[in-house]
Design a protein around this nucleic acid. Sequence first.
DNA 1: CATGCTCATGGAAACGATTCCATCATGTTT
DNA 2: AAACATGATGGAATCGTTTCCATGAGCATG
Lengths: 332, 332
Amino acid sequence: MSMRRTTIKDVAEAARVGVATVSRVLSGGSASPETRERVLTVAAQLDYRPSALGRNLRQQRSGGIGLLLPDITDTFYGRLADGVLACARSAGEPVILGTTGDDEEREAELIGMLVEQGVDRVIAVPSGDGEIWAPTLRAGLTMVFAHRSSGGRDEVPAVLADDRAGVRTAIDYLTGLGHRRIAYLGGPGQSQRLTAFRQALGPLVDEELIVLARGTRDSAYAAAAGLFQHRPDLTAVLAGGNLLGEAAVLAARELDVRVPRDMSLVMFDDVPWAELCSPPLTVIAQPARDIGYRAAELVLRAGGRRPRGVLLPTELIVRGSCGPRGSSRSPR
Amino acid sequence: MSMRRTTIKDVAEAARVGVATVSRVLSGGSASPETRERVLTVAAQLDYRPSALGRNLRQQRSGGIGLLLPDITDTFYGRLADGVLACARSAGEPVILGTTGDDEEREAELIGMLVEQGVDRVIAVPSGDGEIWAPTLRAGLTMVFAHRSSGGRDEVPAVLADDRAGVRTAIDYLTGLGHRRIAYLGGPGQSQRLTAFRQALGPLVDEELIVLARGTRDSAYAAAAGLFQHRPDLTAVLAGGNLLGEAAVLAARELDVRVPRDMSLVMFDDVPWAELCSPPLTVIAQPARDIGYRAAELVLRAGGRRPRGVLLPTELIVRGSCGPRGSSRSPR
DNA sequence: CATGCTCATGGAAACGATTCCATCATGTTT
DNA sequence: AAACATGATGGAATCGTTTCCATGAGCATG
């Protein structure tokens, strides 16, 4: 019924050469022009496609790139994945996707699965402080972090958006509008942004206005609603991600906080619906797709040498969700 | 520096048995209780993880599931992918992701890449009319279609949302509000929805009110804007996907068409931002994640027998984007 | 007691590619 | 002309696993 795939041996026999020669011709080794020609012709005729299985076993590594994301449902990571896929496709490499849910344990599991599969190049948005990665690195994996860097020093190159600058311009913008009580709604694993926030705000920082949520919608909503209820005196919010921004808009509407009259809102990450909101959201755009693309480039071209990380620019896109400081809301 | 991975041979030697026995023990074959015990202990001690590479070559297939989506950036497909990943993870199977951009050629390329990798189980949202799939099927792949089915008869099981019922309830809802001139904004590869639209509308159908866009944002916007400009007499629109819905909202705002006063809008697919819109969008919710999960179940448990497809329910979620038929807009 | 059956077991053969190494032909240098 | 360098070529080993098959032990049945 189903005939056997054509193997390198078939090609060798049909072209009356040895298998070694076929392999050399196909992988760019040296061969005389005439045999090269003959082998190529025969291979084309037989529609020969080398089996990745055999090759992988021999060279002890499956091609392919592992991609570990917190949540593929989040459009930010969707765009990031899109960038990785684009680059991988142009290199002909398959991409194995796994989602961690920002859980270190699941992340470790996934890494185990990847090495089991022989995947030796991984792009990850690291969940924890990156201690899990130490053994992985020692095992000889080529790693690149995207969007977040591992907690401590950087043994692993990272492709990041310039959070520091993004936060700074956003805060400058808000303080320029007269805001003083500015809150920060943060998600998991973004210590960078948080410290940038603290730095940018300087003496104005109010620790009670800093709220951290877990990666879920519910958690984000709870954080936003809690913040708005407890601190009616705040006049501006910086949401550290599109999920947080969504939660902020929702909570504001629910609690009758009008944007931007009662409260200004800046959201990290420009998503399509930011423009559809009313008012349209002022955002800090991040080049999510580029982050993925660059990370893939790095992990693919890592010829033994460990490349330096990359910092990509962010952009403040002013729409309609920020206004001058109004009278602060009265407690309900 | 980097020590060799521990192989089955190491385990065999350490446990003083043959490699065959180790393999049997680890894959659930028969063995005497004592040897089983010994092998398991030793394997655990040496932290032995069987290499997928060797296994794959031997059994001529890499485990793993191929997942082919039009666009991972679209949250619908993001949710679908999430479902697939969830199911695959519980089965310990890796998922190889590829995006087709609704392009048959790219789709064919990706399939080629997958078979080269030895992947023999694929979940796909088919782009074209499915002719590409014939040779693939003959090659012995296990295929499941998700979200769309192949054009003709169904040789391939498909997991679908009940588009027919979804369209019908939406149209009933709109006609119930008094609407007669109802437009359809469609995307690629959804002939199902379109025919359902025609059927549900019956004699009211106006072919000029049916506009099809390609899969991009620009194309969707152009389609929506063109429709609104040319036909100011329409009073309701059914958008056949979240991209189309987004375009409709944008175009309506741009052209000063007020929703729902001037025009009612129902969108296929419930996305988080539908609630953030003003007015909040009335949508036909589809169980995207379930579609993915079920598709993965099907493709995993396909024990030779070809399972029947699955039809999952949709739900009309009424929010604020539909109203009774008002006076139709005057041409500009 | 002999025969046959079941079961655990290990050696060895696949699987399909890459790559080391030996061989042989050809051309170049002394 | 002999020695040597160069380059093309094919045989064979290798990667790590599964699985076929033969072997031998233990046990029951005739």
